[in-house]
Write a protein that binds this DNA or RNA. Structure first.
Lengths: 196, 196
DNA sequence: CCACTGAAGCTAACGTGATTAGCTAAAGGC
DNA sequence: GCCTTTAGCTAATCACGTTAGCTTCAGTGG
C-alpha cells in the first residue's frame, strides 16, 4: 500500500469539521478536497459518494452525541441527570451544528446501518435518565418522545437563529429543563385529558 | 400582454404542491417545469431563481400555517386553545411537510421580507393562546420558546420518521399537549431551579 | 381590421459541482 | 532491487441551475 495520506476516517473527520464551519448545506466535494490539499476526484478513493460521506458524518455525530450525553448523565439521577444530559446535548449541537444537521438529514440505509445502534445509544441514555422519574410504564414512551421533541426542537430552532428577541437563550433553556423536570416529577397525565 | 398561462403565484403554488410530494430537498426546476407542462428556462420568466422560489414557498407556508393556527385558537382559550392550536399545527405539517421544510430552511432576506410578518402572525397566535394561562410576564418568553420547541421538534421528528416504535404517535402527541398544559397551569419555575 | 409591442415560452449554450475513466507513480512486500 | 497495489492526478461526462437570444401570440392603438 502506498502513501495512505487519507483514509475514510480522516476524510470523514475533516468533512465533519468543515460542515460545522460552513453549514451542512454548503458541503461540497471541492471545498473538502481543498481543505485536505487534494484534488476533488481523489476523495473518491476513500468515499463512494457525497451521500455516503454525509451519512458517515451523521454516524460520527450520533456516536459523539451519544458519548457526550451518556457521560453527562453518568453518576447523576433525576433532575440532575436531566439537566446535565440536556445541557450536554445543547452544547454539542451548538459546537457541532453541521454534524447535527447531517444526523438529522440521514435515514438508515439498511438493517445493519451503524447509524441505528448509534441512535439507539442516545435513546438508551435518555431512557436511563427517565427511569429516575417514576412514570407509568405506559407513559415512558410518551415522555421519551416529548423529551426528544423539546430538546431537538430547541436545538434546531437555536441553530437556525430562530430565537430573535434579546432575552437570554441560556435562561430559556434552563427554564425549559425546569419545566420538563417539574412535569415529570408531578406524574403527568394521571388525570385530565385536555387534548382531544 | 400575451398568454399569461403561468404567474409567479401559480408557479409558487405548483412548487409548494410538488415539494409536499417529493420532499423539499428534491425540488428541482426541471421537475417543476415538467409538472407545469413547460420547459425549464420558461420558469425564469416568473421567478428569478430556485432560491427565490424556495423562499416564496416558505412565505406561503408560514402564511398558511398562521391562518390555520389562528383559526384553531379562535374562540377557545386555555387548555382548549392550546390543544386546538397544537393539533392544527401538527396537521398542517403532516399534510405539507415540504412547505414546512421550506419554511425552516429560509432566513429573512431583509427588513421588508414578507416572511417576517408571516412568522410574527404565528408567534402572535401562540402568544394569544399563552395569555390564557397566567404566567409571570418575565416567563412568557421562556414559555413561548418552550412551546415552539416542543411543537417544532415533534413535527420535524415525526416528518423525518423519527418515531419508530409502534406506539401510537397520535397518543404521544395528546400526551405531550397534556404535559405542556399541566405545566403551564401549575405556574412553573416558581421555585426550584434545577437546571444550572 | 391591421400593424405594433411586449412578454411567455422555446432552443442553444454556459458554469458549476458531482462523478467516472484511465494514467502515473510511490510504498511496501518479496 | 523488482512487483504489485492503490493514492492521487488529469481529462471527460453528466445533471442541473441559469443566461442569451429568437419566436410567437395577445392585446392595444390607429
Amino acid at each position: 500500500m502506498p502513501k495512505a495520506r487519507l483514509t475514510p476516517a480522516s476524510v470523514t473527520e475533516a468533512a465533519a469539521a468543515l460542515v460545522d464551519e460552513v453549514g451542512f448545506d454548503n458541503l461540497s466535494m471541492g471545498l473538502l478536497a481543498e481543505r485536505l490539499g487534494v484534488k476533488t476526484p481523489s476523495l473518491y478513493k476513500h468515499v463512494t459518494s457525497q451521500a455516503e460521506l454525509a451519512h458517515r458524518i451523521a454516524v460520527l455525530a450520533m456516536t459523539e452525541a451519544g458519548d457526550v450525553i451518556r457521560d453527562a448523565i453518568q453518576g447523576r439521577s433525576g433532575s440532575d441527570a436531566l439537566a446535565a444530559g440536556a445541557q450536554a446535548m445543547r452544547t454539542y449541537v451548538r459546537e457541532h451544528p453541521g454534524r447535527y444537521a447531517a444526523a438529522n438529514a440521514t435515514r438508515p440505509t439498511g438493517p445493519d446501518d451503524p447509524f441505528i445502534p448509534a441512535s439507539e445509544r442516545v435513546l438508551a441514555s435518555w431512557a436511563a435518565m427517565l427511569s429516575g422519574y417514576d412514570l407509568d410504564p405506559g407513559q415512558e414512551i410518551h415522555a421519551m418522545r416529548t423529551l426528544r421533541s423539546v430538546l431537538h426542537g430547541f436545538a434546531t430552532l437555536e441553530a437556525a437563529g430562530g430565537f430573535q428577541i434579546d432575552a437570554s437563550v441560556d435562561e430559556s433553556f434552563t427554564w425549559l429543563i425546569n419545566f420538563i423536570d417539574q412535569g415529570l416529577r408531578a406524574g403527568v397525565a394521571s388525570g385530565s385529558d385536555v387534548a382531544r
